[in-house]
Structures are given as structure tokens and as C-alpha cells.
Amino acid sequence: MTAREEVLARIRTALGDRRPDVEVPRGYRTTDDRPAGVLLDVLTDRLEDYRATVLRCAADDVATTVGAALGAALGGGWSPADVVVAPGVPAAWRPAGAAEDDGRPAAGLTAFAATLTGVAVAIAETGTLVLDGSPRCGRRALSLLPDCLVCVVEAGQVVGGVPGGLARLDPRAPLTMVSGPSATSDIELQRVEGVHGPRTLVVVLVAAPYGR
């Protein structure tokens, strides 16, 4: 008997002939009908709680805002050549002179100081960005190796809770859920931001800024 046959036989022995259908009670919230403006505020609050930087801008202001964010994160002497961009990021978001991911071996991405990507969906309640490996999000190593990650989120991509977020995703895509910069609580359970993943996370929210 192979291991496969034997483990399956053990399971059948353990369960016996009775195979009751189990109904899963799903009394939890699966939708969130709060207005879009509230969801953006919740998302901002959660991300800032994780020590991410959140900047809001209008649709025609993305590249400028991204440039300002990079300047703040990388310091005054930053150069667009230090920034790598996922191949599907719209031209209007890119700082002039930024490099596009050329598919080099992943270890080569450590040469860049920062990465710019879009997201597939953002979950307000948990402050989560989901990257799905699409051209706009890039391959997984891209959002991992450079020390600063800048993600552009469009207002229409923001959902309230986790159920709404997962429903928008393709389970077969390589998905990365990002909630703040990398962190650890392994020393006396005190949270420290920044371990192996990017130590700086900047989120550019494309939505009419306050007061407009």
C-alpha cells in the first residue's frame, strides 16, 4: 500500500460510514455599505497605525506625489534610476527616468532603493493592500527586495472588509497581502517595524483630497 492509499484508508476508518453534511454558519458581516469616503478614512487610519505613510492626491497629480514620497523616503539625493517600476504601472504615475522591471534574476532587484506598483484591491478595515502578480503589481520579488515600497491605490479599489477583498481576487494568482511595512514582535512582543521586507511603505491614495 502506498502512503497515499494508507493515509486515505486511515481517514476513512477514522470517520466511519456516517458522513453528516456540515452546514457552516455564516452569520458574520460579508458586505460593508459605508460610503466610499469613510472607507478611505478607515484605510488611512489603519495604514498609519502600522507606521505606513499615506498621501492623498487627485488623479492628475500621482507622479508628483510619488516623486515627493520618494524624496521623503530616500532623502534629498535620490535619483529616479534608483526606482524600479512594475511593467504595468501607467506612464502618468511614473517619476521620469524610473527603471521598469526587466525580468532580471530576482537577486538583482536589490540594486534598487525603491519600488513603485499598483494594487489589485485594498481592504480598509485591516489596512491591507493586495498585490496579485498582474503587470500593474509586478512579480512578487519586486515588492519585496527594495527597501522602500510605494503603492498607488485608486479609490475604486478600496473595499470595507476581508470578505469583500477576497471576492475580488483570483485565487490562482500569486497573491501578497501587505499590511504595513515588515515587522516583528519576537523580542518581548514589542513591535518593531522593518525586518526583511521593505522597511518603508508609502501608500498614494488617488482620490479627491480633503476640502476640494
Binding site: R139, R140, P174, L175, V178, A183
Partner: peptide, 17 residues
Amino acid sequence: RMNPYTSLWTGVTPGDG
């Protein structure tokens, strides 16, 4: 509220991972 990173993958993705 959420851990910093959750990775989800299905088999092998050409060109990624």
C-alpha cells in the same frame, strides 16, 4: 488587525517565484 504579510500561491507561476 492584520499581519504584515500573507502569501498565497497555487502550484507554480511561470516567471514569478
